Amino acid sequence: MSVTFEDIEAAARRLSNNAVETPLIESPALNEQVGLRVLIKPETLQRVGAFKFRGAYNRLVQLSAEERTRGVVAFSSGNHAQGVALAARLLGIPAVIVMPDDAPSVKVEATKGYGAEVRFYNRLTGRTREAIAAELASERGAVVVPAFDDPHIIAGQGTVGLELVRQAEALGVELGCVVAPISGGGLISGIATAVKALSPDTAIVGVEPAGFDDTLQSLQKGERVTVKPSGRSLCDALESPFPGEITFPIMQKHVADVATVTDAEVAEAMRYAFATLKLVVEPGGSVGLAALLAGKVNTFGGSSVGLVLSGGNVDPDLFGRVVRGAI
């Protein structure tokens, strides 16, 4: 099961007038600092403050009338939760979201605010979120909406890449590479499928948190690898321990390189985004910028970079500590 460019175009039509076509923005200060022309795609400005709304809406809008009545169940630390919750509200679908009990409070409250029922679990002990979601779905006859390993989700996220390339073309810019975060691979798989269809010479570069480099290890080994980190990452949204079954073959085909960044580099990128770009970006959404600022992005000889800032839902207390330099 894979995703085609036509699937992404169809998703774009479904999302028209429902999702925000986020702009491309440019910072002369950033360009000068990294010695590249960087076109920034701020999905922080998307509905729910992250790209996740795209995939969630594309998945839910295709449910049958009977499925909509039975509702949906999703599991997420935050952004997918909010995306599903809002899409469900817009479409009149009951939604239950399984969230870790240590999820950022801003994400939990937003998910509840969109009208979803939240069920908490402990990610370090007890049953897995997948098992809890499966049980809830079985009890209610609901449809499980995965965070990334679903062709409709991937196609929806791919509209980020579709917009990015077309917006760059309108500026007369040929992108040497596109840089995006990797968790389970839904975003970068969708972006890669769209970008490679429209601009085959553009390289796709992913970024993962150090210690959660499951995609890098998987690509190096040629098979899906599960990592077992000794601790947590600042990037709570990127802590998937393995690539998806559907996303991994797409990444094998299209992703040219994967960089890893430390928590310190992510915190510095968040401060830079706030102070210089005037954007609030969450840790996971900042990893591409972190890699650029740290000189870790292989541009494959290109002088222009497309940079996806994937989300802006950061806990206020955490953000304050980052900005003050306490992290």
Score class of each variant (00 low, 15 high):
95 A>T: 04
30 L>D: 03
155 A>M: 07
149 D>C: 14
151 P>Q: 10
88 A>M: 01
232 R>L: 15
295 G>F: 12
77 S>Y: 09
246 I>R: 12
290 A>G: 03
129 R>W: 12
52 K>M: 00
112 K>E: 15
251 M>G: 06
244 G>Q: 13
97 I>P: 01
248 F>C: 11
248 F>L: 10
259 A>Y: 02
231 G>E: 15
191 I>W: 10
129 R>C: 14
16 S>H: 12
45 L>I: 02
280 V>A: 09
205 V>R: 00
58 N>D: 12
152 H>G: 06
265 E>K: 07
106 V>R: 10
289 L>C: 02
179 V>G: 01
145 V>C: 02
324 R>S: 06
102 D>V: 07
211 G>I: 00
208 E>K: 10
80 H>F: 11
276 T>I: 15
229 P>Q: 12
151 P>F: 08
47 R>V: 08
219 L>E: 14
252 Q>R: 15
206 G>W: 00
255 V>Q: 11
165 V>I: 15
262 T>V: 08
97 I>Q: 10
210 A>W: 08
274 F>Q: 09
73 V>P: 09
258 V>A: 01
165 V>S: 04
55 G>A: 03
282 E>Q: 06
277 L>M: 05
310 S>C: 04
195 V>R: 09
299 T>V: 07
314 V>R: 07
205 V>I: 03
280 V>E: 12
156 G>S: 08
172 G>V: 06
317 D>E: 11
20 V>M: 13
81 A>W: 07
221 K>H: 04
272 Y>R: 01
187 L>R: 02
315 D>Y: 06
262 T>P: 02
132 I>Q: 08
1 M>C: 14
151 P>H: 07
181 P>T: 13
291 A>Y: 01
228 K>S: 14
201 D>G: 08
304 S>V: 08
219 L>A: 13
269 A>F: 04
296 K>W: 02
63 L>G: 00
267 A>F: 03
90 L>H: 02
124 L>K: 15
298 N>T: 02
161 G>V: 10
21 E>V: 05
159 T>L: 05
46 Q>C: 00
165 V>A: 07
54 R>G: 03
50 A>I: 00
211 G>M: 01
172 G>A: 11
136 L>T: 06
157 Q>P: 01
183 S>N: 04
261 V>L: 08
126 G>Y: 14
204 I>V: 11
199 S>D: 13
22 T>F: 00
310 S>T: 07
64 S>R: 07
196 K>T: 15
295 G>A: 07
122 N>A: 12
22 T>H: 01
231 G>H: 15
229 P>T: 05
33 Q>P: 04
279 L>G: 03
122 N>T: 13
59 R>D: 01
228 K>M: 13
106 V>T: 14
194 A>G: 12
200 P>H: 11
210 A>M: 11
12 A>Q: 04
67 E>P: 08
279 L>F: 08
9 E>T: 14
166 R>P: 05
79 N>P: 07
298 N>G: 01
136 L>F: 09
179 V>H: 01
239 E>K: 13
284 G>W: 00
232 R>T: 14
315 D>N: 10
315 D>H: 10
157 Q>K: 00
179 V>Q: 00
38 V>I: 02
130 E>V: 12
257 D>F: 12
191 I>C: 01
30 L>C: 03
250 I>S: 06
168 A>D: 04
262 T>I: 05
8 I>R: 13
252 Q>W: 10
71 G>P: 03
144 V>D: 10
133 A>V: 11
275 A>V: 09
191 I>N: 03
301 G>A: 00
158 G>Q: 06
180 A>N: 02
15 L>A: 05
